[in-house]
Write a protein that binds this DNA or RNA. Structure first.
Lengths: 148, 148
DNA sequence: GTATAAACTAAGCCTTGGCTAAATTATAAG
DNA sequence: CTTATAATTTAGCCAAGGCTTAGTTTATAC
């Protein structure tokens, strides 16, 4: 239970919420580049139609989002052609995938089901700091080693 | 590393992203009612000025958000007066606080620092399913008991 | 009891990220 | 090589959640 009669300092609490909002802003970008990277690896290319269907949005929505990503330097594509990641996009995709995988493996390692780990890691990955990620990695190692 | 040459089924992946987006929509509501509940407990009342400063937003922004929460039945207030939670609002605040505390305690119990646990739990709490929450609780119990 | 300060609301603007409907371009089929 | 289909873009709408600037209301101080 929280300390009775005590609230965190206003400016500290504000800073945390502000930070969460910041993280939110990059979520879409991370999800898109991660997906595009996957599509390129597996299908050889990333088409809008696949991005849209896998993101669960309509094609115009995906199109608009991709225009933003292009504006911000994460992807590259010519009209009616498939989508490519810039170096910046690739870097973000790699970092993002790594984080995603750690969160996923961590959840599995503490006993969460495969399906739930898949679902929860999708939402959680964007809110896990470097420090927590490090702890997650340690836990994964510990829970995989114990050979008695 | 992810399975080479295999992507999850499009409709399943889409469903997960859709679900994360759904969670997003309720985040603001949860954060606000949780904070309002805290303010009422500790200060006896919740004033807009405090909500705004603790959420890290301007007063007009808080005002607009609260109007939405009122429209949706979570809070109640008359112009220029302090803010009250409806039964629905109280229920959500309680549920939300509980979830928040479990995530926070969980992070602490696996070795994350107090400060980081505070920060990360703020963002993570909205993306943790019931199943994962249950596992978190188990881990908290296990990590607090070990008396050799 | 009236001035001044603080709290709140109103109005208007912006971006993101959804949507649909309609137009355009590429691709595939005949 | 033309036509039908599929993919993509364009245009326009909406809500959420930020902001600033300006106006009201309430509370405080003298």
């Amino acid at each position: 239970m929280r300390d009775e009669g005590k609230l965190p300092e206003a400016h500290e609490q504000a800073a945390r919420f502000t930070q969460v909002r910041e993280a939110h802003k990059t979520e879409a970008t991370e999800d898109y580049v991660e997906l595009i990277d996957d599509l390129i690896r597996v299908h050889g290319e990333a088409r809008l139609v696949d991005v849209a269907s896998r993101m669960g949005v309509t094609q115009p929505t995906a199109s608009k989002t991709l225009a933003r990503l292009q504006r911000d330097g994460f992807v590259n594509s010519e009209p009616y052609r498939s989508i490519f990641l810039t170096d910046q996009g690739k870097a973000l995709a790699t970092e993002s995938r790594l984080r995603h995988e750690i969160v996923f493996e961590f959840l599995l390692s503490i006993g969460v089901s495969h399906e739930t780990a898949t679902r929860d890691s999708e939402g959680m990955e964007h809110h896990v700091s470097e420090e927590t990620l490090k702890v997650f990695k340690k836990v994964i190692r510990q829970n995989s080693k114990p050979k008695p």
